[in-house]
Simulated assay, not measured.
Amino acid sequence: MPTSFEVVTLVHAPPGLVFDTSLSVEAHTTSMAASRERAVAGVTSGRLGADDQVTWQARHFGLPWRLTSVISVCERPGYFVDEQVAGPFRHWRHAHHFVLAPDGQSTIMRDVVEFAAPAGPLGAAVEALVLRRYMTRLILARNAHLKRTTEAAARSAE
């Protein structure tokens, strides 16, 4: 059974802008600068779309990692999913939801992440003790960057 968690972020920008920024390779790599994440194969710049694949290379826990994901669902401006097709996880699925907030101007961005480590019972222990907390912090850092970026872009467009 995969581990899952959810992160909700309020962004003071319209859903279309938040959606588009979330699919930007450059926004992703900037948000993951601490792990030196970069796109090394597939779509390596610009905005990802349906069926696009990208291979990410990064350092986590002091070790090099490579993960290839595909945008398996892309329904602008409300929803997209990226899923691992090759990499370190037994299972990785990240659903991104974008809903207009009650104020009619902001976006409620909801990330639902499901993952499973390899290595059976040992992997399950690592998920529970380390990976869930680590992955949640990565998504929180990514969302903080997306929030700053899209809010600044929305203000400059006014």
Rank of each mutant, 00 (worst) to 15 (best):
L146P: 02
R47I: 15
G87I: 06
V8N: 05
G42P: 11
M32F: 14
D111Q: 05
E158M: 12
Q53I: 05
I139D: 02
R137C: 04
L146M: 11
S156N: 13
E26G: 07
H28F: 13
D103L: 08
A144E: 15
H12C: 07
E114W: 10
Q84N: 07
D82Y: 03
R36G: 13
I71M: 02
E127H: 11
A141N: 08
T55M: 05
V112F: 14
D111E: 05
G87V: 04
D20L: 06
L129R: 10
L122A: 15
Q53A: 04
M32R: 09
G42D: 02
A141Y: 06
M109A: 15
V70K: 08
G120D: 03
P88M: 14
L17A: 05
R133V: 12
A117Y: 09
F5C: 06
G46D: 09
V54Q: 05
T3M: 14
D52E: 03
R36M: 08
R132P: 03
H94R: 00
A41L: 02
A154G: 09
V112Q: 10
D51S: 13
Q53H: 08
L129C: 10
L63Y: 01
A144M: 11
S156I: 15
L122G: 08
Q57P: 02
R133N: 14
E75R: 13
L10V: 10
T68F: 11
L48P: 00
H97P: 02
H94Q: 06
A39L: 08
S4R: 14
W56L: 02
R76E: 00
D20E: 09
H94Y: 00
R148C: 13
P14M: 14
E83A: 04
F61W: 14
E37D: 08
D103H: 00
Y79G: 00
V113C: 10
L100T: 09
D103R: 03
E114H: 13
A125D: 02
G78I: 08
P77D: 00
V81Y: 00
V81L: 00
T136N: 13
E26F: 04
S4H: 13
A27F: 01
R93K: 11
M1D: 13
E75H: 02
R76I: 00
R90F: 04
R137E: 12
A50I: 13
T30W: 08
S22N: 10
S69K: 14
A27Q: 11
H145Q: 04
Q105I: 05
T21E: 12
I71R: 01
V126S: 06
H97L: 10
H60Y: 08
A101W: 01
E26H: 05
D52S: 11
M109L: 14
W65D: 00
P88K: 01
C74M: 00
T30Y: 10
F89M: 10
W56T: 01
G123L: 04
S31I: 01
L138Q: 15
R137W: 05
